[in-house]
Computed example of a mutant assay.
Amino acid sequence: MTREWRKISKAEKDIIRPFIAEVPVRIATMARELGLEVKSATLRPRISGQIQPSSDSPSGFRIRVNRHEAKTRQRFTIAHEIAHYLLHRDFIGDGIEDTILYRSTLSDPREAEANRMAAQLLMPEPTIISSFRRHGGRATPNVAAIMAEEFDVSEAAMRIRIGLS
């Protein structure tokens, strides 16, 4: 169990668990089940996503993701914004805008936490281990590419997750 996972409530874990048992993780549906509104939008250049207060959503927050970015980046952005909601909602204030490097006005430790949690949500450890073994148990560029497609994430994200980068 990771440090980030220990920080979220039992109720939130109960919502998340069924989603992380399937690959690829249905991240937008998970967000909605957590009460987050998810919208595709045209955002300013170099902005991948944002989370901001919204009186229209059950949780009180809305995620906007840049519609002009690759689908795998949009999925990671949604997971990253979910992580901010789960871990940092007391710090969201008027909203958090994340750049293409997943940097925001929050401190770097919180951004690193959100990135780790996003990776855990999209590429859960048990399914990563199972897939890794099924594909030969060696971290190679080819295995990263195959697993990236299986998990519907970028090759860069998968390389980091399996220890190639």
Rank of each mutant, 00 (worst) to 15 (best):
residue 57 S to A: 13
residue 54 S to H: 05
residue 84 H to T: 06
residue 16 I to F: 02
residue 10 K to I: 12
residue 91 F to Y: 14
residue 106 L to N: 07
residue 2 T to M: 10
residue 26 R to G: 10
residue 67 R to K: 04
residue 92 I to V: 07
residue 140 T to M: 09
residue 64 R to Q: 09
residue 116 R to I: 07
residue 126 P to M: 11
residue 67 R to S: 09
residue 99 T to V: 07
residue 117 M to P: 03
residue 27 I to S: 02
residue 94 D to W: 13
residue 7 K to F: 03
residue 136 G to W: 05
residue 41 A to Q: 15
residue 100 I to A: 15
residue 86 L to C: 13
residue 40 S to K: 14
residue 69 E to D: 13
residue 19 F to C: 10
residue 55 S to K: 13
residue 99 T to N: 14
residue 148 A to M: 10
residue 34 L to E: 11
residue 3 R to P: 02
residue 102 Y to P: 09
residue 109 P to I: 03
residue 122 L to K: 06
residue 138 R to E: 08
residue 53 P to Y: 05
residue 23 V to Y: 08
residue 22 E to D: 06
residue 115 N to I: 08
residue 157 A to E: 04
residue 151 F to V: 10
residue 147 M to F: 09
residue 74 Q to G: 07
residue 21 A to K: 13
residue 105 T to E: 15
residue 157 A to G: 02
residue 18 P to E: 09
residue 43 L to I: 04
residue 1 M to V: 10
residue 93 G to I: 03
residue 77 T to E: 05
residue 21 A to Q: 12
residue 120 Q to D: 05
residue 124 P to D: 01
residue 31 A to T: 02
residue 155 E to F: 11
residue 1 M to R: 07
residue 149 E to P: 01
residue 58 P to G: 01
residue 150 E to Q: 15
residue 161 R to Q: 00
residue 27 I to Y: 00
residue 88 H to K: 06
residue 6 R to F: 11
residue 50 Q to L: 14
residue 73 R to F: 03
residue 93 G to A: 15
residue 154 S to I: 06
